[in-house]
């Protein structure tokens, strides 16, 4: 079993008030020291999954189970959840420009988070902020803390964002496409930082649609398709031998950076179903090249090999 279980989503289901299921069935695990990459197409529900863990979706009805450090979060009072948010679990967002309040210095915003959770003086909070910024590789952290978001480059802003997320020593860090808005060379810097955080023992949940990013930074990967987790497993194994037909197709569609250049890239015909028009059976069936009659009943997540979960009838439990 190894490391201690940090976050366990079990059949998480998320509905709009009108009954449309945005998340159908999301099950995944994050252990301490693990980095779980959550990949999938745009609109598949990656951000919604993250937001549900943080409890930031008040308008939507969630069912199933979100278990964090052994505590059930669903049904918890907002007051208690708030105490976890920012302290036990923290989140960083795609666009660090808009994620910070534009009218206050980044130092003040990091101080705020520290003082929300720990009773410390302004001076102590600022000292911690400066130390954190320094640890994140921000040059001249003391001056940087006094700057406003628009005065920093995208990379520095994202570092500040990570510093803020880490300021109360969370055991789970959720990063929603933290590098999508950044340049490749800056992305590499941020990914290196995330790897260090993971190695220091925190759990990381990294949302992205870039398989390369997952391969580089994560230990495990969960593939989301139309509101369902269709495959989960260790990164190396999934990359080398994807089980689910969707994962296979997704990996094949990435143009290679070396080796022979294919005449045409393999593509997936059709497009993902809308949340209110999911097929009865396997959600991937309309686009699947292996579809067979028994796909008409939605396959549950099964574990054909140790540690590898897949929701497809091609595999026996």
């Amino acid at each position: 079993m190894g490391a201690e279980m940090l976050l366990k989503l079990h059949h998480l289901h998320l509905e709009l008030p009108n009954g449309t299921a945005l998340l159908e069935d999301v099950s995944l695990n994050v252990r301490r020291g693990d980095a779980l990459g959550v990949v999938g197409e745009s609109g598949s529900g990656k951000s919604l999954t993250a937001m549900s863990v943080m409890g930031l979706l008040p308008g939507l009805k969630a069912s199933g189970s979100i278990c964090f450090e052994g505590r059930e979060l669903l049904g918890m009072k907002d007051r208690e959840w708030r105490r976890l948010r920012g302290a036990g679990m923290a989140m960083i967002f795609q666009d660090p420009m808009t994620a910070f309040l534009p009218v206050r210095s980044i130092g003040a915003q990091i101080d705020e988070q520290i003082r929300l959770h720990d009773r410390v003086s302004r001076r102590e909070a600022r000292a911690r902020t400066v130390a954190l910024l320094g640890r994140m590789g921000v040059p001249d952290p003391e001056a940087a803390a006094k700057r406003y978001p628009h005065q920093l480059s995208g990379g520095l802003r994202q570092r500040a964002m990570i510093a803020m997320a880490l300021s109360c020593g969370p055991s789970l860090l959720i990063a929603d496409e933290p590098t999508t808005a950044l340049d490749v060379t800056v992305q590499a810097q941020i990914l290196t930082l995330l790897c260090e955080i993971r190695d220091s023992g925190a759990g990381v949940m990294l949302i992205t649609h870039d398989m390369g990013v997952v391969a580089q930074t994560c230990t495990h990967v969960a593939v989301v398709y139309s509101g369902l987790v269709v495959e989960q497993g260790p990164v190396a194994a999934v990359m080398a031998r994807p089980l689910h037909p969707y994962t296979q197709a997704l990996l094949e569609a990435i143009p290679p950076l070396d080796g022979p250049r294919p005449e045409a890239l393999p593509t997936i015909p059709g497009r993902p179903p809308a949340p209110d028009a999911r097929p009865e059976g396997c959600v991937f069936a309309p686009r699947c090249r292996f579809v067979r009659p028994d796909c008409a009943v939605r396959p549950a997540l099964r574990e054909p090999e140790e540690g590898r979960h897949v929701a497809c009838v091609l595999y026996d439990a």
């Binding site: 580089q216 930074t217 990359m239």
Partner: peptide, 9 residues
């Protein structure tokens, strides 16, 4: 800087 499965960053 392009992340790839086959080598560390």
């Amino acid at each position: 800087a392009v992340p790839r499965p086959d080598r560390p960053l």
